[in-house]
Structures are given as structure tokens and as C-alpha cells.
């Protein structure tokens, strides 16, 4: 951003918070270098372990607070998989639970001030989305063989329309991983960047900073909601794709 140097007073670098930095100094980022990505993903793992392993350690019949949250998360995702993907989708529940719980914790950890949001990176979300895409495609082909192609051939539509619809369906099928990944990363990036922009205003306004601060509070509350909803949406879309793979006949 060349203009920043020129204006001087207003120093806003909304994208700096997303820079991947090595944890222990140095500039080179090899594939194995421990970076802030490593740190915040490790924290997400720690949170998962705290909630779902340490929290349920008591195996209490009448659950403690943490245990009931863990059970709530379990029941929430389980019901979602069962409702959307169907009874035979329950087999894949651990995978979806893994994705959901990781995204939830990565999103929420990213909301801590000065934190690094791993899910705001296209690389991370695209990896997950492509994994889901290839998984459901291969699963669909293995389970249904050529019948999987009936997903694109809508037998309910008039015959003349079917080739056009098939083309649209094929395109939308291959756009799936793109929208799937960019939705999550874009939401996270946008929210954090907006907060950072308002924070930049607050820095130069002096007493008037109260207005940007109020705006930050409101946006932050929205971001808390969005963090959860995006994780939910990612998981539920995974369930929808899974259902399409298991039952391609509309």
C-alpha cells in the first residue's frame, strides 16, 4: 500500500495480521518451519483436548459444565450429520466432527486480540475444501459407479432442458470447493480486516475514538456469531456433499 507512506497520520495495515511468520526468528519459511500457523493450530488442538478429553474425564452421569458443552457439541454435529447426510452418513461423523471442531476453535482463537487466524488463509480452507471435494467424489464413484453421474442428469426436468441443466450442475459441482473454501476464509479475513480498519481510525481520532470503539464492539459481536455460523455452514455443506455422494438420485 503505497499511499500509507504518503499520508503519514493514518497508518492502517489491515492485512498485516495475516502474515505468516516463523516462530523462532529467521526469514525462511520451509514446509517444516514452526510458524505462527503452527502455534495457533497447536492451541486449537489443545482446546479440543481440553474440551473433549479433559472435560469429559469424569464420565459423569450428571455432567459438569464443560462436559455438558462437549456433549452439546457432540449431539449438535451428530444430529446434523444424521439429518442432512442420512443414516448411512453417520459412519463419516468423526471426519465431519474433526473439521467442525477444528474450524470452531480456530475461528474463536482468532478472535483473541493479537491472535493469528489460521482459517483466514485460503491455503488452509482450500486444503480442507479440496479434501472434502475429492473425498465425496471418490466416495460417490466407488459407492454408485456410473450411477453417480445421475447427480448431474436431473430426471425431474423436461428432457429438452436436461443437457443445459447438466452443464450447470457440472459447473456448480466443480465450483463447490472454491465457494466452500473462499466462504470461510473470506468471512474470517473480512471480519478481522474490518476490525483492524476501525482500530486504525480509533488510533488517530483521539477522544472521538469512542465511535470506532463502539463500532469495533458491534463488529466483534457479529464476528463471534459469524465464527460459529461459518464453522456450522462448512460442516453442513460437507454433509450436503456427502449426501449427494451417497444418494446421487435426487
Amino acid at each position: 500500500m503505497a499511499s500509507d507512506q504518503a499520508t503519514g497520520g493514518l497508518q492502517i495495515h489491515p492485512m498485516d495480521q495475516f502474515i505468516v511468520k516463523p516462530l523462532f526468528g529467521g526469514d525462511a519459511i520451509h514446509w517444516y518451519t514452526p510458524t505462527n500457523v503452527t502455534l495457533w493450530m497447536a492451541l486449537a488442538v489443545v482446546c479440543v483436548v481440553l474440551l473433549l478429553v479433559i472435560g469429559t474425564r469424569g464420565r459423569a452421569l450428571v455432567p459438569s459444565r464443560v462436559q455438558s458443552v462437549a456433549e452439546l457439541a457432540y449431539g449438535f454435529v451428530y444430529k446434523m450429520v444424521e439429518d442432512v447426510a442420512g443414516k448411512d452418513g453417520v459412519k463419516y461423523f468423526p471426519y465431519i466432527m474433526t473439521l467442525f471442531i477444528f474450524i470452531v476453535f480456530a475461528n474463536f482463537l482468532g478472535l483473541i486480540p493479537m491472535a493469528f487466524t489460521t482459517t483466514s488463509h485460503i491455503a488452509v480452507t482450500a486444503t480442507m475444501a479440496l479434501a472434502v471435494f475429492f473425498f465425496v467424489t471418490i466416495l460417490g464413484v466407488v459407492k454408485n459407479g456410473v450411477g453417480f453421474l445421475s447427480l448431474f442428469w436431473i430426471s425431474a426436468a423436461p428432457l429438452a432442458l436436461r443437457p443445459i441443466l447438466a452443464l450447470i450442475e457440472v459447473i456448480s459441482y466443480f465450483v463447490r470447493p472454491v465457494s466452500h473454501s473462499i466462504r470461510l476464509a473470506g468471512n474470517m479475513m473480512a471480519g478481522h480486516a474490518v476490525i483492524k480498519v476501525f482500530a486504525g481510525f480509533a488510533g488517530v481520532l483521539g477522544v472521538g475514538a469512542i465511535f470506532p470503539l463502539a463500532a469495533i464492539t458491534a463488529v466483534y459481536a457479529l464476528e463471534v456469531l459469524v465464527s460459529f455460523i461459518q464453522a456450522y455452514v462448512f460442516a453442513i455443506l460437507t454433509c450436503v456433499y456427502l449426501r449427494d455422494a451417497l444418494h446421487p438420485h435426487h
Binding site: V20, A70, Y74, M97, V124, T127
Partner: peptide
């Protein structure tokens, strides 16, 4: 780098979930 650590994280979470938590 990100993809590598993501895969590590997801695998760890998957094993924690499927072996212990779930």
C-alpha cells in the same frame, strides 16, 4: 508450511476424537 501444519493438526484432532473423545 500451512498445508503441512494443517494436515498434522487435522490428523491429531482426528485421532484424539476417534480414539478417545467420541
Amino acid at each position: 508450511n500451512q498445508i503441512f501444519w494443517l494436515v498434522v493438526t487435522l490428523v491429531v484432532i482426528y485421532f484424539v476424537l476417534s480414539r478417545i473423545a467420541l
